[in-house]
C-alpha cells in the first residue's frame, strides 16, 4: 500500500466520522442529504460482500466493517433518531435516476459476469454519483454549515487521493483498472466546483454560501 492509498482511506474515514459526530453533537441532521447517505450505505453493502468470500488483511476487513457500520448508523440517525431535524423539503433528488443507470451499466460493462463482480461494479458506478443529492441539497439551500463543508472536502479528497494511488500503481506495478479509474475521475470532477468554493471561502474562515 502506498501513501496515497493510505491517505485516501484515512480521508474517507475522517469524512464518515466528521458526519457522524456532527449529527450526534448538534443533535441535528439539517443540511445533510439522507438520500446520499442511503446511496453510500448501498455502495458499501454491495461492494463489501467479499467480506464473506475472501480474507485479504486485518486492515482491509476492519476498515470495511467500520465503513459499513458507520454508514448504517448515519442513515439511522437521519431517518430514525433525529428525523425531526431532517430536511425533507430540500432533499428531493430522485435517486432512481442514479440507481437504475448504475445497475444497467454494471450489467453491461464489468470485468466478469458473476453476481459478486456485477455488484462490485455497480457499487463503483453508484459511488461516483452518490454525492449528487447532497450537492443538490447544498445548491438548493444555497449554503452549507462549515462542518458539512469539511465533511464534503474530506469525502471528495478521498477519491482524488485514490487517483494518485492508481497513477502510482500504474507506473510502479503496471496495474490499472479502467472501471474504477474512469468512475474515480467522474467522482472527483463532481467535487471540483465545491473544492473551489471550499478553498476560496471556507479556508478563509467564511461560511460556504453560493452566489445568488
Amino acid at each position: 500500500m502506498n501513501v496515497f492509498r493510505f491517505l485516501g482511506d484515512l480521508s474517507h474515514l475522517v469524512a464518515i466520522v466528521i458526519l457522524l459526530l456532527k449529527i450526534w453533537k448538534t443533535r441535528s441532521c439539517s443540511g445533510i442529504s439522507g438520500r446520499s447517505q442511503i446511496l453510500f450505505a448501498i455502495v458499501f453493502t454491495t461492494r463489501y460482500l467479499d467480506l464473506f468470500s475472501n480474507f485479504i488483511s486485518v486492515y482491509n476487513t476492519s476498515m470495511k466493517i467500520v465503513y459499513i457500520t458507520c454508514s448504517y448508523a448515519t442513515v439511522y440517525l437521519i431517518y430514525g433518531k433525529f428525523k425531526a431535524t431532517y430536511d425533507f423539503n430540500h432533499d428531493t433528488f430522485r435517486i432512481e435516476f442514479l440507481l437504475v443507470p448504475s445497475a444497467i451499466l454494471a450489467f453491461l460493462v464489468n470485468h466478469d459476469f458473476s453476481p459478486l463482480e456485477i455488484l462490485w461494479t455497480f457499487s463503483i458506478y453508484l459511488e461516483s454519483v452518490a454525492i449528487l443529492p447532497q450537492l443538490f441539497l447544498v445548491s438548493k439551500t444555497g449554503e452549507a454549515e462549515t462542518i458539512t463543508s469539511h465533511y464534503l472536502f474530506a469525502l471528495g479528497s478521498y477519491r482524488l487521493l485514490y487517483l494518485l494511488n492508481w497513477l502510482w500503481r500504474y507506473f510502479s506495478q503496471g496495474f490499472y483498472d479502467l472501471i474504477a479509474l474512469l468512475s474515480g475521475i467522474l467522482q472527483t470532477v463532481l467535487y471540483c466546483d465545491f473544492f473551489y468554493l471550499y478553498i476560496s471561502k471556507v479556508l478563509k474562515g467564511k461560511k460556504l454560501s453560493l452566489p445568488a
Binding site: 470485468h111 466478469d112 462490485w120 483498472d177 474504477a180
Partner: peptide, 10 residues
Amino acid sequence: KDQEDRHDEL
C-alpha cells in the same frame, strides 16, 4: 490476481 488487487482497495 487483478480481481484480488481490486478487492484489496476500499
